[in-house]
């Protein structure tokens, strides 16, 4: 379980996250909406522990342990993983090698890559000269190899071409154990498959396309560094589509 209490985060002298409370239970997937610059990526980076996202108040707990001050790699080893929106290019390091590093050796990079149509890019340097969509798939491939318990996705579908969008959506769903195929015979009852599900997800999306491929449990809107809405993700998406984020501002002023 991920528990965030009263989190305040400062980046480059500006308080970007004001007081964030968030709880993701095992098996749950949450969607994070919000206009550009509202602090969505900052929230993910702070959860992952990037040092320039300085926690000025509040706590982050993961699986019952406080991780607020832990370095990035210790969080990763506890089971946090992230798919980056704009990852750096790693010269001299092949995608195959980073996949093996992610999995600490115990993985067949080629068969994982085949799942996400990345096989032909395994010998390329990580992110070097890749298109937007290829970068997203490279991120998913690394995350698959890492196999974390909490998966943070920063706009996994942006920049992905039409041909691959379904592939990306289905892969994210698969990583979050949303479409566990029954071993044989009848699929297990819904309640059963929910109980078996342990992976937690937090997905940033602008377009909501990802919701065509997976069911999410909750949606949040981050507006000006504050979570201002909690509800059914499709409902929130529909509302943003109709009224824009202006509505969130109205909400915030009304409740705040």
């Amino acid at each position: 379980m991920l528990v965030i209490e009263g989190l305040q985060v400062e980046v480059g002298g500006r308080m970007l996250l004001k007081r964030i409370d968030l709880e993701i239970k095992p098996g749950e997937t949450h969607i994070l909406f919000g206009p550009n610059g509202s602090g969505k990526t900052s929230l993910l980076m702070a959860i992952m522990g990037f040092p320039n996202y300085m926690v000025r108040g509040g706590h982050i707990y993961f699986m019952g342990r406080e991780i607020t001050g832990l370095p990035i790699h210790e969080r990763a080893r506890l089971g946090l993983g992230m798919s980056f929106q704009r990852p750096p290019t790693m010269h001299g390091l092949k995608t195959r090698q980073i996949v093996e590093l992610c999995a600490r050796g115990k993985v067949d990079a080629a068969s994982l890559a085949r799942r996400i149509n990345m096989e032909h890019l395994l010998e390329r340097e990580v992110n070097a000269g890749l298109s937007g969509g290829e970068i997203k798939r490279s991120e998913l491939l690394q995350l698959m190899a890492q196999d974390p318990d909490l998966l943070l996705f920063d706009e996994p579908e942006s920049g992905v071409d039409l041909e691959n969008i379904a592939l990306v959506g289905k892969t994210v769903a698969w990583m979050l154990q949303k479409d566990v195929e029954p071993a044989q015979g009848e699929p297990p009852p819904l309640r059963e498959s929910r109980r078996q599900r342990t992976k937690m997800g937090l997905i940033i999306t602008h377009t909501g396309h990802i919701l065509n491929y997976l069911e999410a449990d909750r949606g949040h809107v981050l507006f000006d560094g504050q979570l201002c809405c909690l509800g059914n993700p499709r409902e929130i998406l529909g509302c943003i589509g109709r009224f824009g984020y202006e509505e969130c501002l109205r909400c915030l002023t009304a409740t705040g």
Partner: peptide
């Protein structure tokens, strides 16, 4: 680049 170090640390490598 610190960004590259952080990226690999997010994949579980220590500094």
């Amino acid at each position: 680049a610190q960004e590259e170090i952080n990226y690999l640390m997010a994949r579980g490598l220590d500094e």
